[in-house]
């Protein structure tokens, strides 16, 4: 056993803040759930949830909104990790969307609305969750920069940026009426660098897609898209190349561009990230549809 050092580092403070938030939800909200997107932020959030309640297991289930288009490696990772840790996992897919054949190639922005936003709303309603943790960070995007840690959603699960509850010190108002809910972001004040440093410090396992490896990709609109299964149809002039790529964010494979990289260890990935100058979300195509206000629009509609 160690005697604790008095000085608190930057990561100590962020960790303490996140644990405090997670415990507040467990103590005050009636039926919480932690959204688990399998990405690095979710992996950090999962670790924080384990730390917050140890020796007890997190007192809420984890939920993955599966569009059916996630990278195969993500799904394998999800199932293995949840099993190893003995946690309760709920997987929800918008079956109606699947029946209608909604896909990222043909339906663009509608695909995100139906398979992500709608699916999430369906799942929260179906299980009656009153609070859902998300791994979003304020440094990701400018409308998120203004969002509270405890983000109130009305009965339609919509966010009203002009009428947010004032959030003071560490006092969170978790009270809601029937049908209303909360989205809670314990990583609000973390930056991408913080997330990576924490993963390194805590030795947190993440999906191997974050590390560079020779992978079959096709270059489309300046982005390297992984050929993850046969549903990716080559367009005229496109060819599959074996290139060393890694992914800075993970989502639906047809919508997530990889970057050329040789970084195949956590140290190299962190090093590359610390010197990166393009903001993280430029590789995620979803935010670009509909211009700079698109994330804010999606959030108002109930997307995270």
């Amino acid at each position: 056993m160690k005697t604790e050092l008095v000085s608190k580092t930057h990561l100590d403070r962020l960790e303490a803040e996140a644990i405090y938030i997670i415990r507040e939800v467990a103590a005050e909200c009636e039926k919480p759930v932690m959204l688990y997107s399998i990405g690095k932020d979710s992996s950090v959030m999962l670790r924080l949830a384990e730390k917050a309640f140890y020796p007890e297991k997190p007192p809420f289930p984890f939920m993955h909104i599966d569009t059916g288009w996630k990278f195969k490696e993500m799904i394998e990772f999800r199932d293995r990790v949840m099993k190893e840790k003995g946690l309760e996992l709920i997987v929800h897919t918008n079956e109606e969307g699947v029946r209608k054949g909604i896909n990222p190639f043909d339906h663009g922005a509608a695909y995100t609305d139906i398979m992500k936003t709608e699916a999430l709303k369906q799942a929260l309603t179906k299980y009656g969750f009153t609070a859902a943790f998300g791994g979003a960070r304020r440094d990701e995007e400018k409308s998120r920069a203004k969002e509270r840690v405890f983000s109130f959603r009305d009965a339609n699960q919509a966010w009203d940026p002009r009428n947010q509850r004032p959030e003071m010190w560490n006092l969170y108002n978790t009270r809601i009426a029937k049908g209303e809910s909360m989205r809670v972001f314990p990583l609000s004040n973390w930056t991408e660098k913080d997330v990576w440093q924490y993963i390194m410090q805590e030795n947190i396992e993440i999906v191997p897609l974050y590390f560079a490896k020779k992978r079959p990709v096709v270059c489309r609109d300046g982005q390297y898209i992984l050929v993850d299964d046969e549903r990716l149809k080559l367009k005229d002039g496109e060819k599959i190349e074996e290139l060393s790529v890694r992914f800075r964010t993970l989502g639906c494979y047809p919508l997530t561009g990889g970057s050329l990289s040789e970084a195949d260890t956590i140290e190299e990935v962190v090093e590359e990230t610390l010197h990166a100058s393009a903001s993280e979300r430029t590789t995620r195509i979803i935010d670009k549809d509909g211009g700079s206000a698109s994330m804010e629009m999606r959030k108002k509609e109930g997307y995270f």
Binding site: M1, K2, T3, E4, V6, K8, D12, R13, E15, A16, I19, Y20, R23, K51, A52
Partner: peptide
């Protein structure tokens, strides 16, 4: 831990 101080969860 054997000890802990202000700010620690």
């Amino acid at each position: 831990k054997e000890t802990a101080s202000a700010g620690s969860p």
